[in-house]
């Protein structure tokens, strides 16, 4: 069993389709949704984690490929721009899963561990430098 984080974009033509249901039913994947959104223009955004066998995940990604859906494997809904980060550490206390943390206590360097992020978006408000942003 492996777990992959993916972030999907659904154009208007695909938002009506119950794609996630099929991931569960046809590919036996365990789905953990972090965030989902449908815009007034009827575009959809979905950030989720899927767990299953490598074979099923590969087949599921191929299935997603048959739709007009944009898949960003591993690239989640929250982005940390390292070049904008000033390593002040203001975010650390506001990040519940410690995805943003001091990784070198001597130089007090901050790093973002994408796998830990639960997309609560608290960092976006907490960072004065605008280093964190949301894909949707």
């Amino acid at each position: 069993m492996i777990t992959k984080k993916i972030y999907l974009y659904f154009p208007k033509s695909e938002t009506e389709k119950p794609i996630v249901y099929q991931l569960v039913k046809d590919y036996d994947l365990i789905v953990n949704i972090f965030r989902a959104k449908v815009t007034p223009e009827e575009e959809g955004y979905l950030s989720l984690e899927v767990t299953g066998s490598q074979e099923n995940i590969t087949r599921a990604f191929a299935f997603l490929g048959t739709f007009d859906v944009v898949i960003h494997a591993g690239n989640k809904g929250v982005h940390w721009d390292e070049s904008r980060c000033s390593h002040c550490g203001a975010c650390v206390v506001h990040c519940p899963p410690a995805a943003l943390a001091i990784v070198d206590p001597h130089t007090r360097t901050i790093a973002f561990n994408e796998d830990r992020c639960i997309e609560c978006l608290a960092c976006i408000a907490a960072c004065p430098f605008g280093a964190c942003s949301s894909a949707f």
């Binding site: 000033s86 390593h87 130089t107």
Partner: peptide
């Protein structure tokens, strides 16, 4: 109480 900084020690160094 958890403590964080607004000043960057990293950049100062």
């Amino acid at each position: 109480v958890p403590v964080t900084s607004l000043s960057s020690y990293n950049k100062a160094l």
